[in-house]
């Protein structure tokens, strides 16, 4: 998997011997909440008949933070518009796409490949250029980003599958962090850039302006803080209280 994922990055970022590496790190991504999983845990969504925490797993790991290597996209945004990269491969499998969030210049062609042993039926939400169509096992489907903006893609046959494509003409390079949060951006041209993290189609954390010269840059000392622990803790607490209230309501209402 990693090989194909690397191929994606290679395809997205123009290879150049003179490309500068921006090494950085995202921090606090465990304070983010995957919207699909968070929605699925809501009892009102009827996503399960029972769901219980395993006591031996520490509470900090029970938070439904995203799988950073697929869901957090780090983009280097240039000062001006950038050329569209070669087609980007998006794999459909395992209940999600890889990547989940993608930031590319408008006009970029995306190739969706079904890696599951059963069919999918992707479609765009709220825009007409990506109508529902079956993609059988191993087949591909192409779509070009129509313009700037956020485009959500879903699967009629797999409700948990949601993908966000952000069309931004200034995207010069993108990267996905590791499980530890480390990432490396390859920027071909020197200049002024802004490093920005995207998650679920939205910007998360502060933008980090950088000046790229010929040498590589190490940004790990100033990590991109994409999630606030206090806010996450407050949200988690509110969520727990809401769940408790719902459980009490259900208990009063009886088992339906």
């Amino acid at each position: 998997m990693k090989a194909s994922w690397a191929a994606l990055l290679i395809a997205l970022v123009p290879a150049s011997a003179e490309a500068a590496k921006l090494r950085g790190r995202v921090d606090g991504f465990r304070n983010l909440l995957n919207p699909v999983w968070a929605e699925a845990k809501d009892p009102k969504e009827h996503g399960y008949s029972f769901r219980e925490p395993v006591p031996t797993v520490r509470a900090e790991f029970r938070r439904l933070f995203p799988h950073a290597p697929k869901e957090i996209c780090i983009a280097a945004l240039a000062a001006g518009p950038q050329k569209s990269p070669p087609p980007v491969l998006v794999r459909i499998g395992g209940g999600r796409t890889t990547p989940v969030t993608l930031v590319v210049p408008p006009g970029t062609r995306l190739t969706f490949q079904n890696t599951d042993p059963f069919k999918h039926r992707l479609h765009g939400v709220g825009f007409p250029t990506f109508q529902p169509a079956d993609t059988v096992r191993g087949a591909t489907r192409e779509w070009s980003v129509p313009g700037p903006g956020v485009f959500e893609i879903r699967d009629e046959l797999a409700p948990s599958l949601r993908m966000w494509v952000v069309g931004d003409p200034t995207v010069a390079a993108i990267a996905y962090p590791s499980m530890k949060g480390d990432f490396a951006l390859s920027v071909e041209q020197p200049g002024e850039y802004t490093v920005q993290a995207f998650f679920a189609g939205k910007k998360v954390g502060p933008a980090m302006p950088v000046t790229v010269k010929e040498a590589d840059l190490d940004l790990t000392k100033t990590p991109l803080k994409v999630g606030d622990e206090k806010a996450a803790a407050a949200a988690e607490k509110a969520d727990a209280e809401k769940a408790k209230a719902d459980a009490e309501t259900d208990a009063k209402g009886g088992d339906k």
Partner: peptide, 23 residues
């Protein structure tokens, strides 16, 4: 299928985050 995965499904994600549940 060497790249066969299930991590996107909420039931698997929940298990990876310390929950036991059904789906």
């Amino acid at each position: 299928m060497e790249d066969f995965e299930l991590g996107g499904y909420p039931v698997v994600a929940d298990a990876l985050h310390g929950y036991v549940r059904d789906d």
